[in-house]
Design a protein around this nucleic acid. Structure first.
Lengths: 202, 202
DNA sequence: ACCATGCCTTGACCTAAGATAAGAACTTAC
DNA sequence: GTAAGTTCTTATCTTAGGTCAAGGCATGGT
């Protein structure tokens, strides 16, 4: 019998690993920081932060997959970002300014997330030069990822965007329904279906 | 007789003001930091950083207007960002990793820019808690601006994007040729012309 | 086991925006 | 001051992708 994700709380495994390996934070610093973060389980479909709400956390995905999106006045969803394991995600604007969130955040799979509040970042930056530098780079990489996405949207066709997406996120193709990928790419599910047929039969 | 911008070097006026007023850095810290930055004049049309080059600076626009863009394989330009006075701009990826730049940066008007290198940011972050917090927020605001732009591209029409652009950057309409605004919006100059006619005659 | 719901595909048709071309109104360069 | 760019507009035609409608599979709940 398979245990559910819920039964096996991951105890910050990935988070700890991420901070030491990728961010270069010393194990002592990591242990000193851990008491001020908390782990939360999110059932598939659970809305973690709704547009208009004031959230207090930034999230690190320990396990599972989150989805950052908005809903327009016709009720259509537009996906801005997928956040699989080892990703950081949040409506940072809202987080920093205590403004109501502009976007929604929900769980696309049963997920475990690490919740980090403002003071975690202050403490971590204060304590660790490595964390500071890393966090800075993290934000800058996100900016670049977004500039590339803007370029893809203004400068390339639906087909090219789809082909790039597959290359960049091969695992996501398996994990999310096709209509969400269409939404991320800025096209309709019907168009994506047609594009896929073209790509397949070439 | 009107003096050219070149003749009147602005001596970090805006930059100084920006750091103290907006970033909250103390005047003493600002003065301590100034020796490690330099001012550069860029003639209209001058390419400051070309795709493929390795640049060493981040730029703060003291006066004038810069343009951050890419050129696709058909030779078409796609504008990712305009940077008027008080903006920060650079190919940060390249800046941080010493990678060749992905994008171009040029002067759209005769401009004065403050050149900041890696060590400026290290020193400033080391020295001033205020700068650190401010820089962090600056990056996060840019991320949000980009998420909004992505949403505009995947979720709204050319006309809506144009109307939003006018609201957000009324001054730029006067300062840059229309075809560049079209490029920023992700449409052709012809389409923008049509959109403008519609908007005017409603 | 069955029905309801969600997801993907296909086809027919439509529309927003791209491509092409040409001309008018300007700048700028010599 | 004239020639050579630019920029913007307008018209016509084309096309990528949207909309609408229907049908086929899965899959999950009772």
């Amino acid at each position: 019998m398979v245990k559910t994700a819920k039964q096996m709380a991951p105890e910050f495994r990935k988070f700890r690993e991420y901070l030491t390996q990728r961010a270069g934070v010393s194990p002592e610093h990591v242990e000193a920081l851990l008491p001020s973060v908390s782990l939360k389980f999110c059932k598939k479909g659970e809305v973690i932060l709704a547009q208009g709400a004031v959230g207090e956390y930034i999230y690190f995905v320990e396990q599972g997959l989150l989805r950052f999106y908005t809903i327009d006045d016709q009720g259509k969803e537009h996906i801005l970002q997928f956040a699989p394991e080892n990703w950081w995600i949040s409506d940072r604007n809202n987080f920093n300014q205590n403004q109501p969130a502009e976007f929604f955040l929900d769980a696309q799979e049963d997920s475990w997330v690490v919740q980090l509040n403002q003071s975690f970042f202050l403490k971590a930056s204060e304590m660790s030069k490595e964390f500071r530098a890393f966090h800075d780079q993290l934000l800058q990489r996100r900016i670049f990822q977004l500039y590339r996405r803007v370029y893809a949207l203004i400068g390339t066709s639906a087909r090219q965007r789809y082909e790039e997406f597959i290359k960049a996120y091969p695992d996501l193709i398996q994990r999310v329904p096709q209509w969400m990928i269409a939404s991320y790419l800025g096209i309709t599910p019907e168009s994506l279906s047609r594009v896929r047929r073209e790509v397949a039969g070439k």
